[in-house]
């Protein structure tokens, strides 16, 4: 690098400037609106202040959306990561792994709207799932999985599990396979290789996978409307924000809800990252001489 750097020193400023359009775009379209929304959230019809926030937290209909959203998104994230970790581990060197990843990528790319529509049909009272349960006598009456909590929860698993799986698989395959081999020659059984080698090296990846999975689940919107009970048990915070903005045209209130949403989200991210700091955070391949 040193020789290249000295040759290119003359042009250093020009090259660094290449980052400018990207930065400008994100500043203009992300940071500026975000700050604008932040300021807007403190304005109300009566002047500037915390009124919107006070209103949000003093109106159960609004403030409960935080608990509702967490109550759906947190278990869904735990289930997704909890399923994805052992499955990614078991299939990481399987000959069917490429096929499996190609299949699992389908629900991610189809997006939440299509999954919601599909689940409405599939899980509905006349859907194939209930038919199967009735025919096989696994259930005596149709089970209700749509227009309630479970519909939204299941839609989050359908789109979230493949996401978590692909993410964890990429972290797992990034761990140098010679390390568990070394552990094996030192007497570690496959289970202890997992506990003593894979798991500690996977902590950073797990933290990031959890955060990204949680962002997805926490921002649940279309499936909560289409597949849930948007007036009651699945009235998530996105719905409240959307209604404030596009049904009540109360942009300051909508901005306040968006800020609260971002705040809760970032709080969870910070919490996860804080836990991660307690663990090893270095390269996941052995040091090279």
């Amino acid at each position: 690098m040193s020789s290249a750097a000295s040759i290119q020193r003359k042009t250093v400023d020009v090259t660094a400037l290449l980052v400018a359009p990207g930065v400008g775009l994100v500043l203009l379209l992300f940071l500026y609106p975000f700050l604008y929304g932040f300021l807007l959230s403190f304005s109300a019809h009566e002047g500037v202040g915390l009124r919107n926030y006070v209103k949000f937290f003093s109106t159960p209909f609004l403030s409960q959306t935080i608990a509702t959203t967490l109550w759906i998104s947190f278990p869904a994230t735990v289930v997704n990561i909890g399923l994805a970790l052992p499955i990614a581990f078991a299939t990481r060197r399987h000959r069917l792994q490429r096929l499996l990843t190609a299949i699992l990528v389908v629900p991610i790319t189809l997006g939440t709207v299509l999954i919601a529509e599909g689940l409405l049909l599939y899980l509905g009272p006349q859907g194939w799932l209930n038919r199967f349960l009735l025919v096989t006598h696994l259930s005596t009456s149709a089970i209700h999985l749509t227009h309630n909590y479970w519909g939204v929860f299941l839609s989050l698993v359908v789109s979230g599990f493949p996401f978590a799986y692909l993410l964890l698989l990429s972290y797992l395959t990034g761990i140098d396979p010679v390390l568990p081999q070394a552990a094996a020659t030192l007497g570690a059984s496959p289970w202890r290789q997992f506990i003593h080698i894979y798991l500690p090296l996977l902590v950073p990846g797990l933290a990031i996978a959890f955060c990204l999975s949680f962002v997805q689940a926490f921002s649940v919107f279309p499936s909560a409307v289409l597949l849930g009970a948007p007036a009651g048990p699945t009235r998530v915070i996105s719905i409240a924000a959307y209604q404030a903005a596009f049904e009540d045209y109360d942009y300051p209130m909508a901005s306040a809800i968006a800020m609260i949403m971002a705040g809760v989200q970032l709080l969870v991210v910070v919490l996860i990252l804080a836990i991660r700091v307690l663990f090893y955070r270095g390269p996941t391949v052995g040091p090279k001489g």
Partner: peptide, 16 residues
């Protein structure tokens, strides 16, 4: 892990 042979790997494979 049941053979109990010691092994020194090419890139050492030290647990980072």
């Amino acid at each position: 892990e049941r053979r109990g042979f010691g092994m020194v790997f090419q890139n050492y494979a030290l647990f980072p």
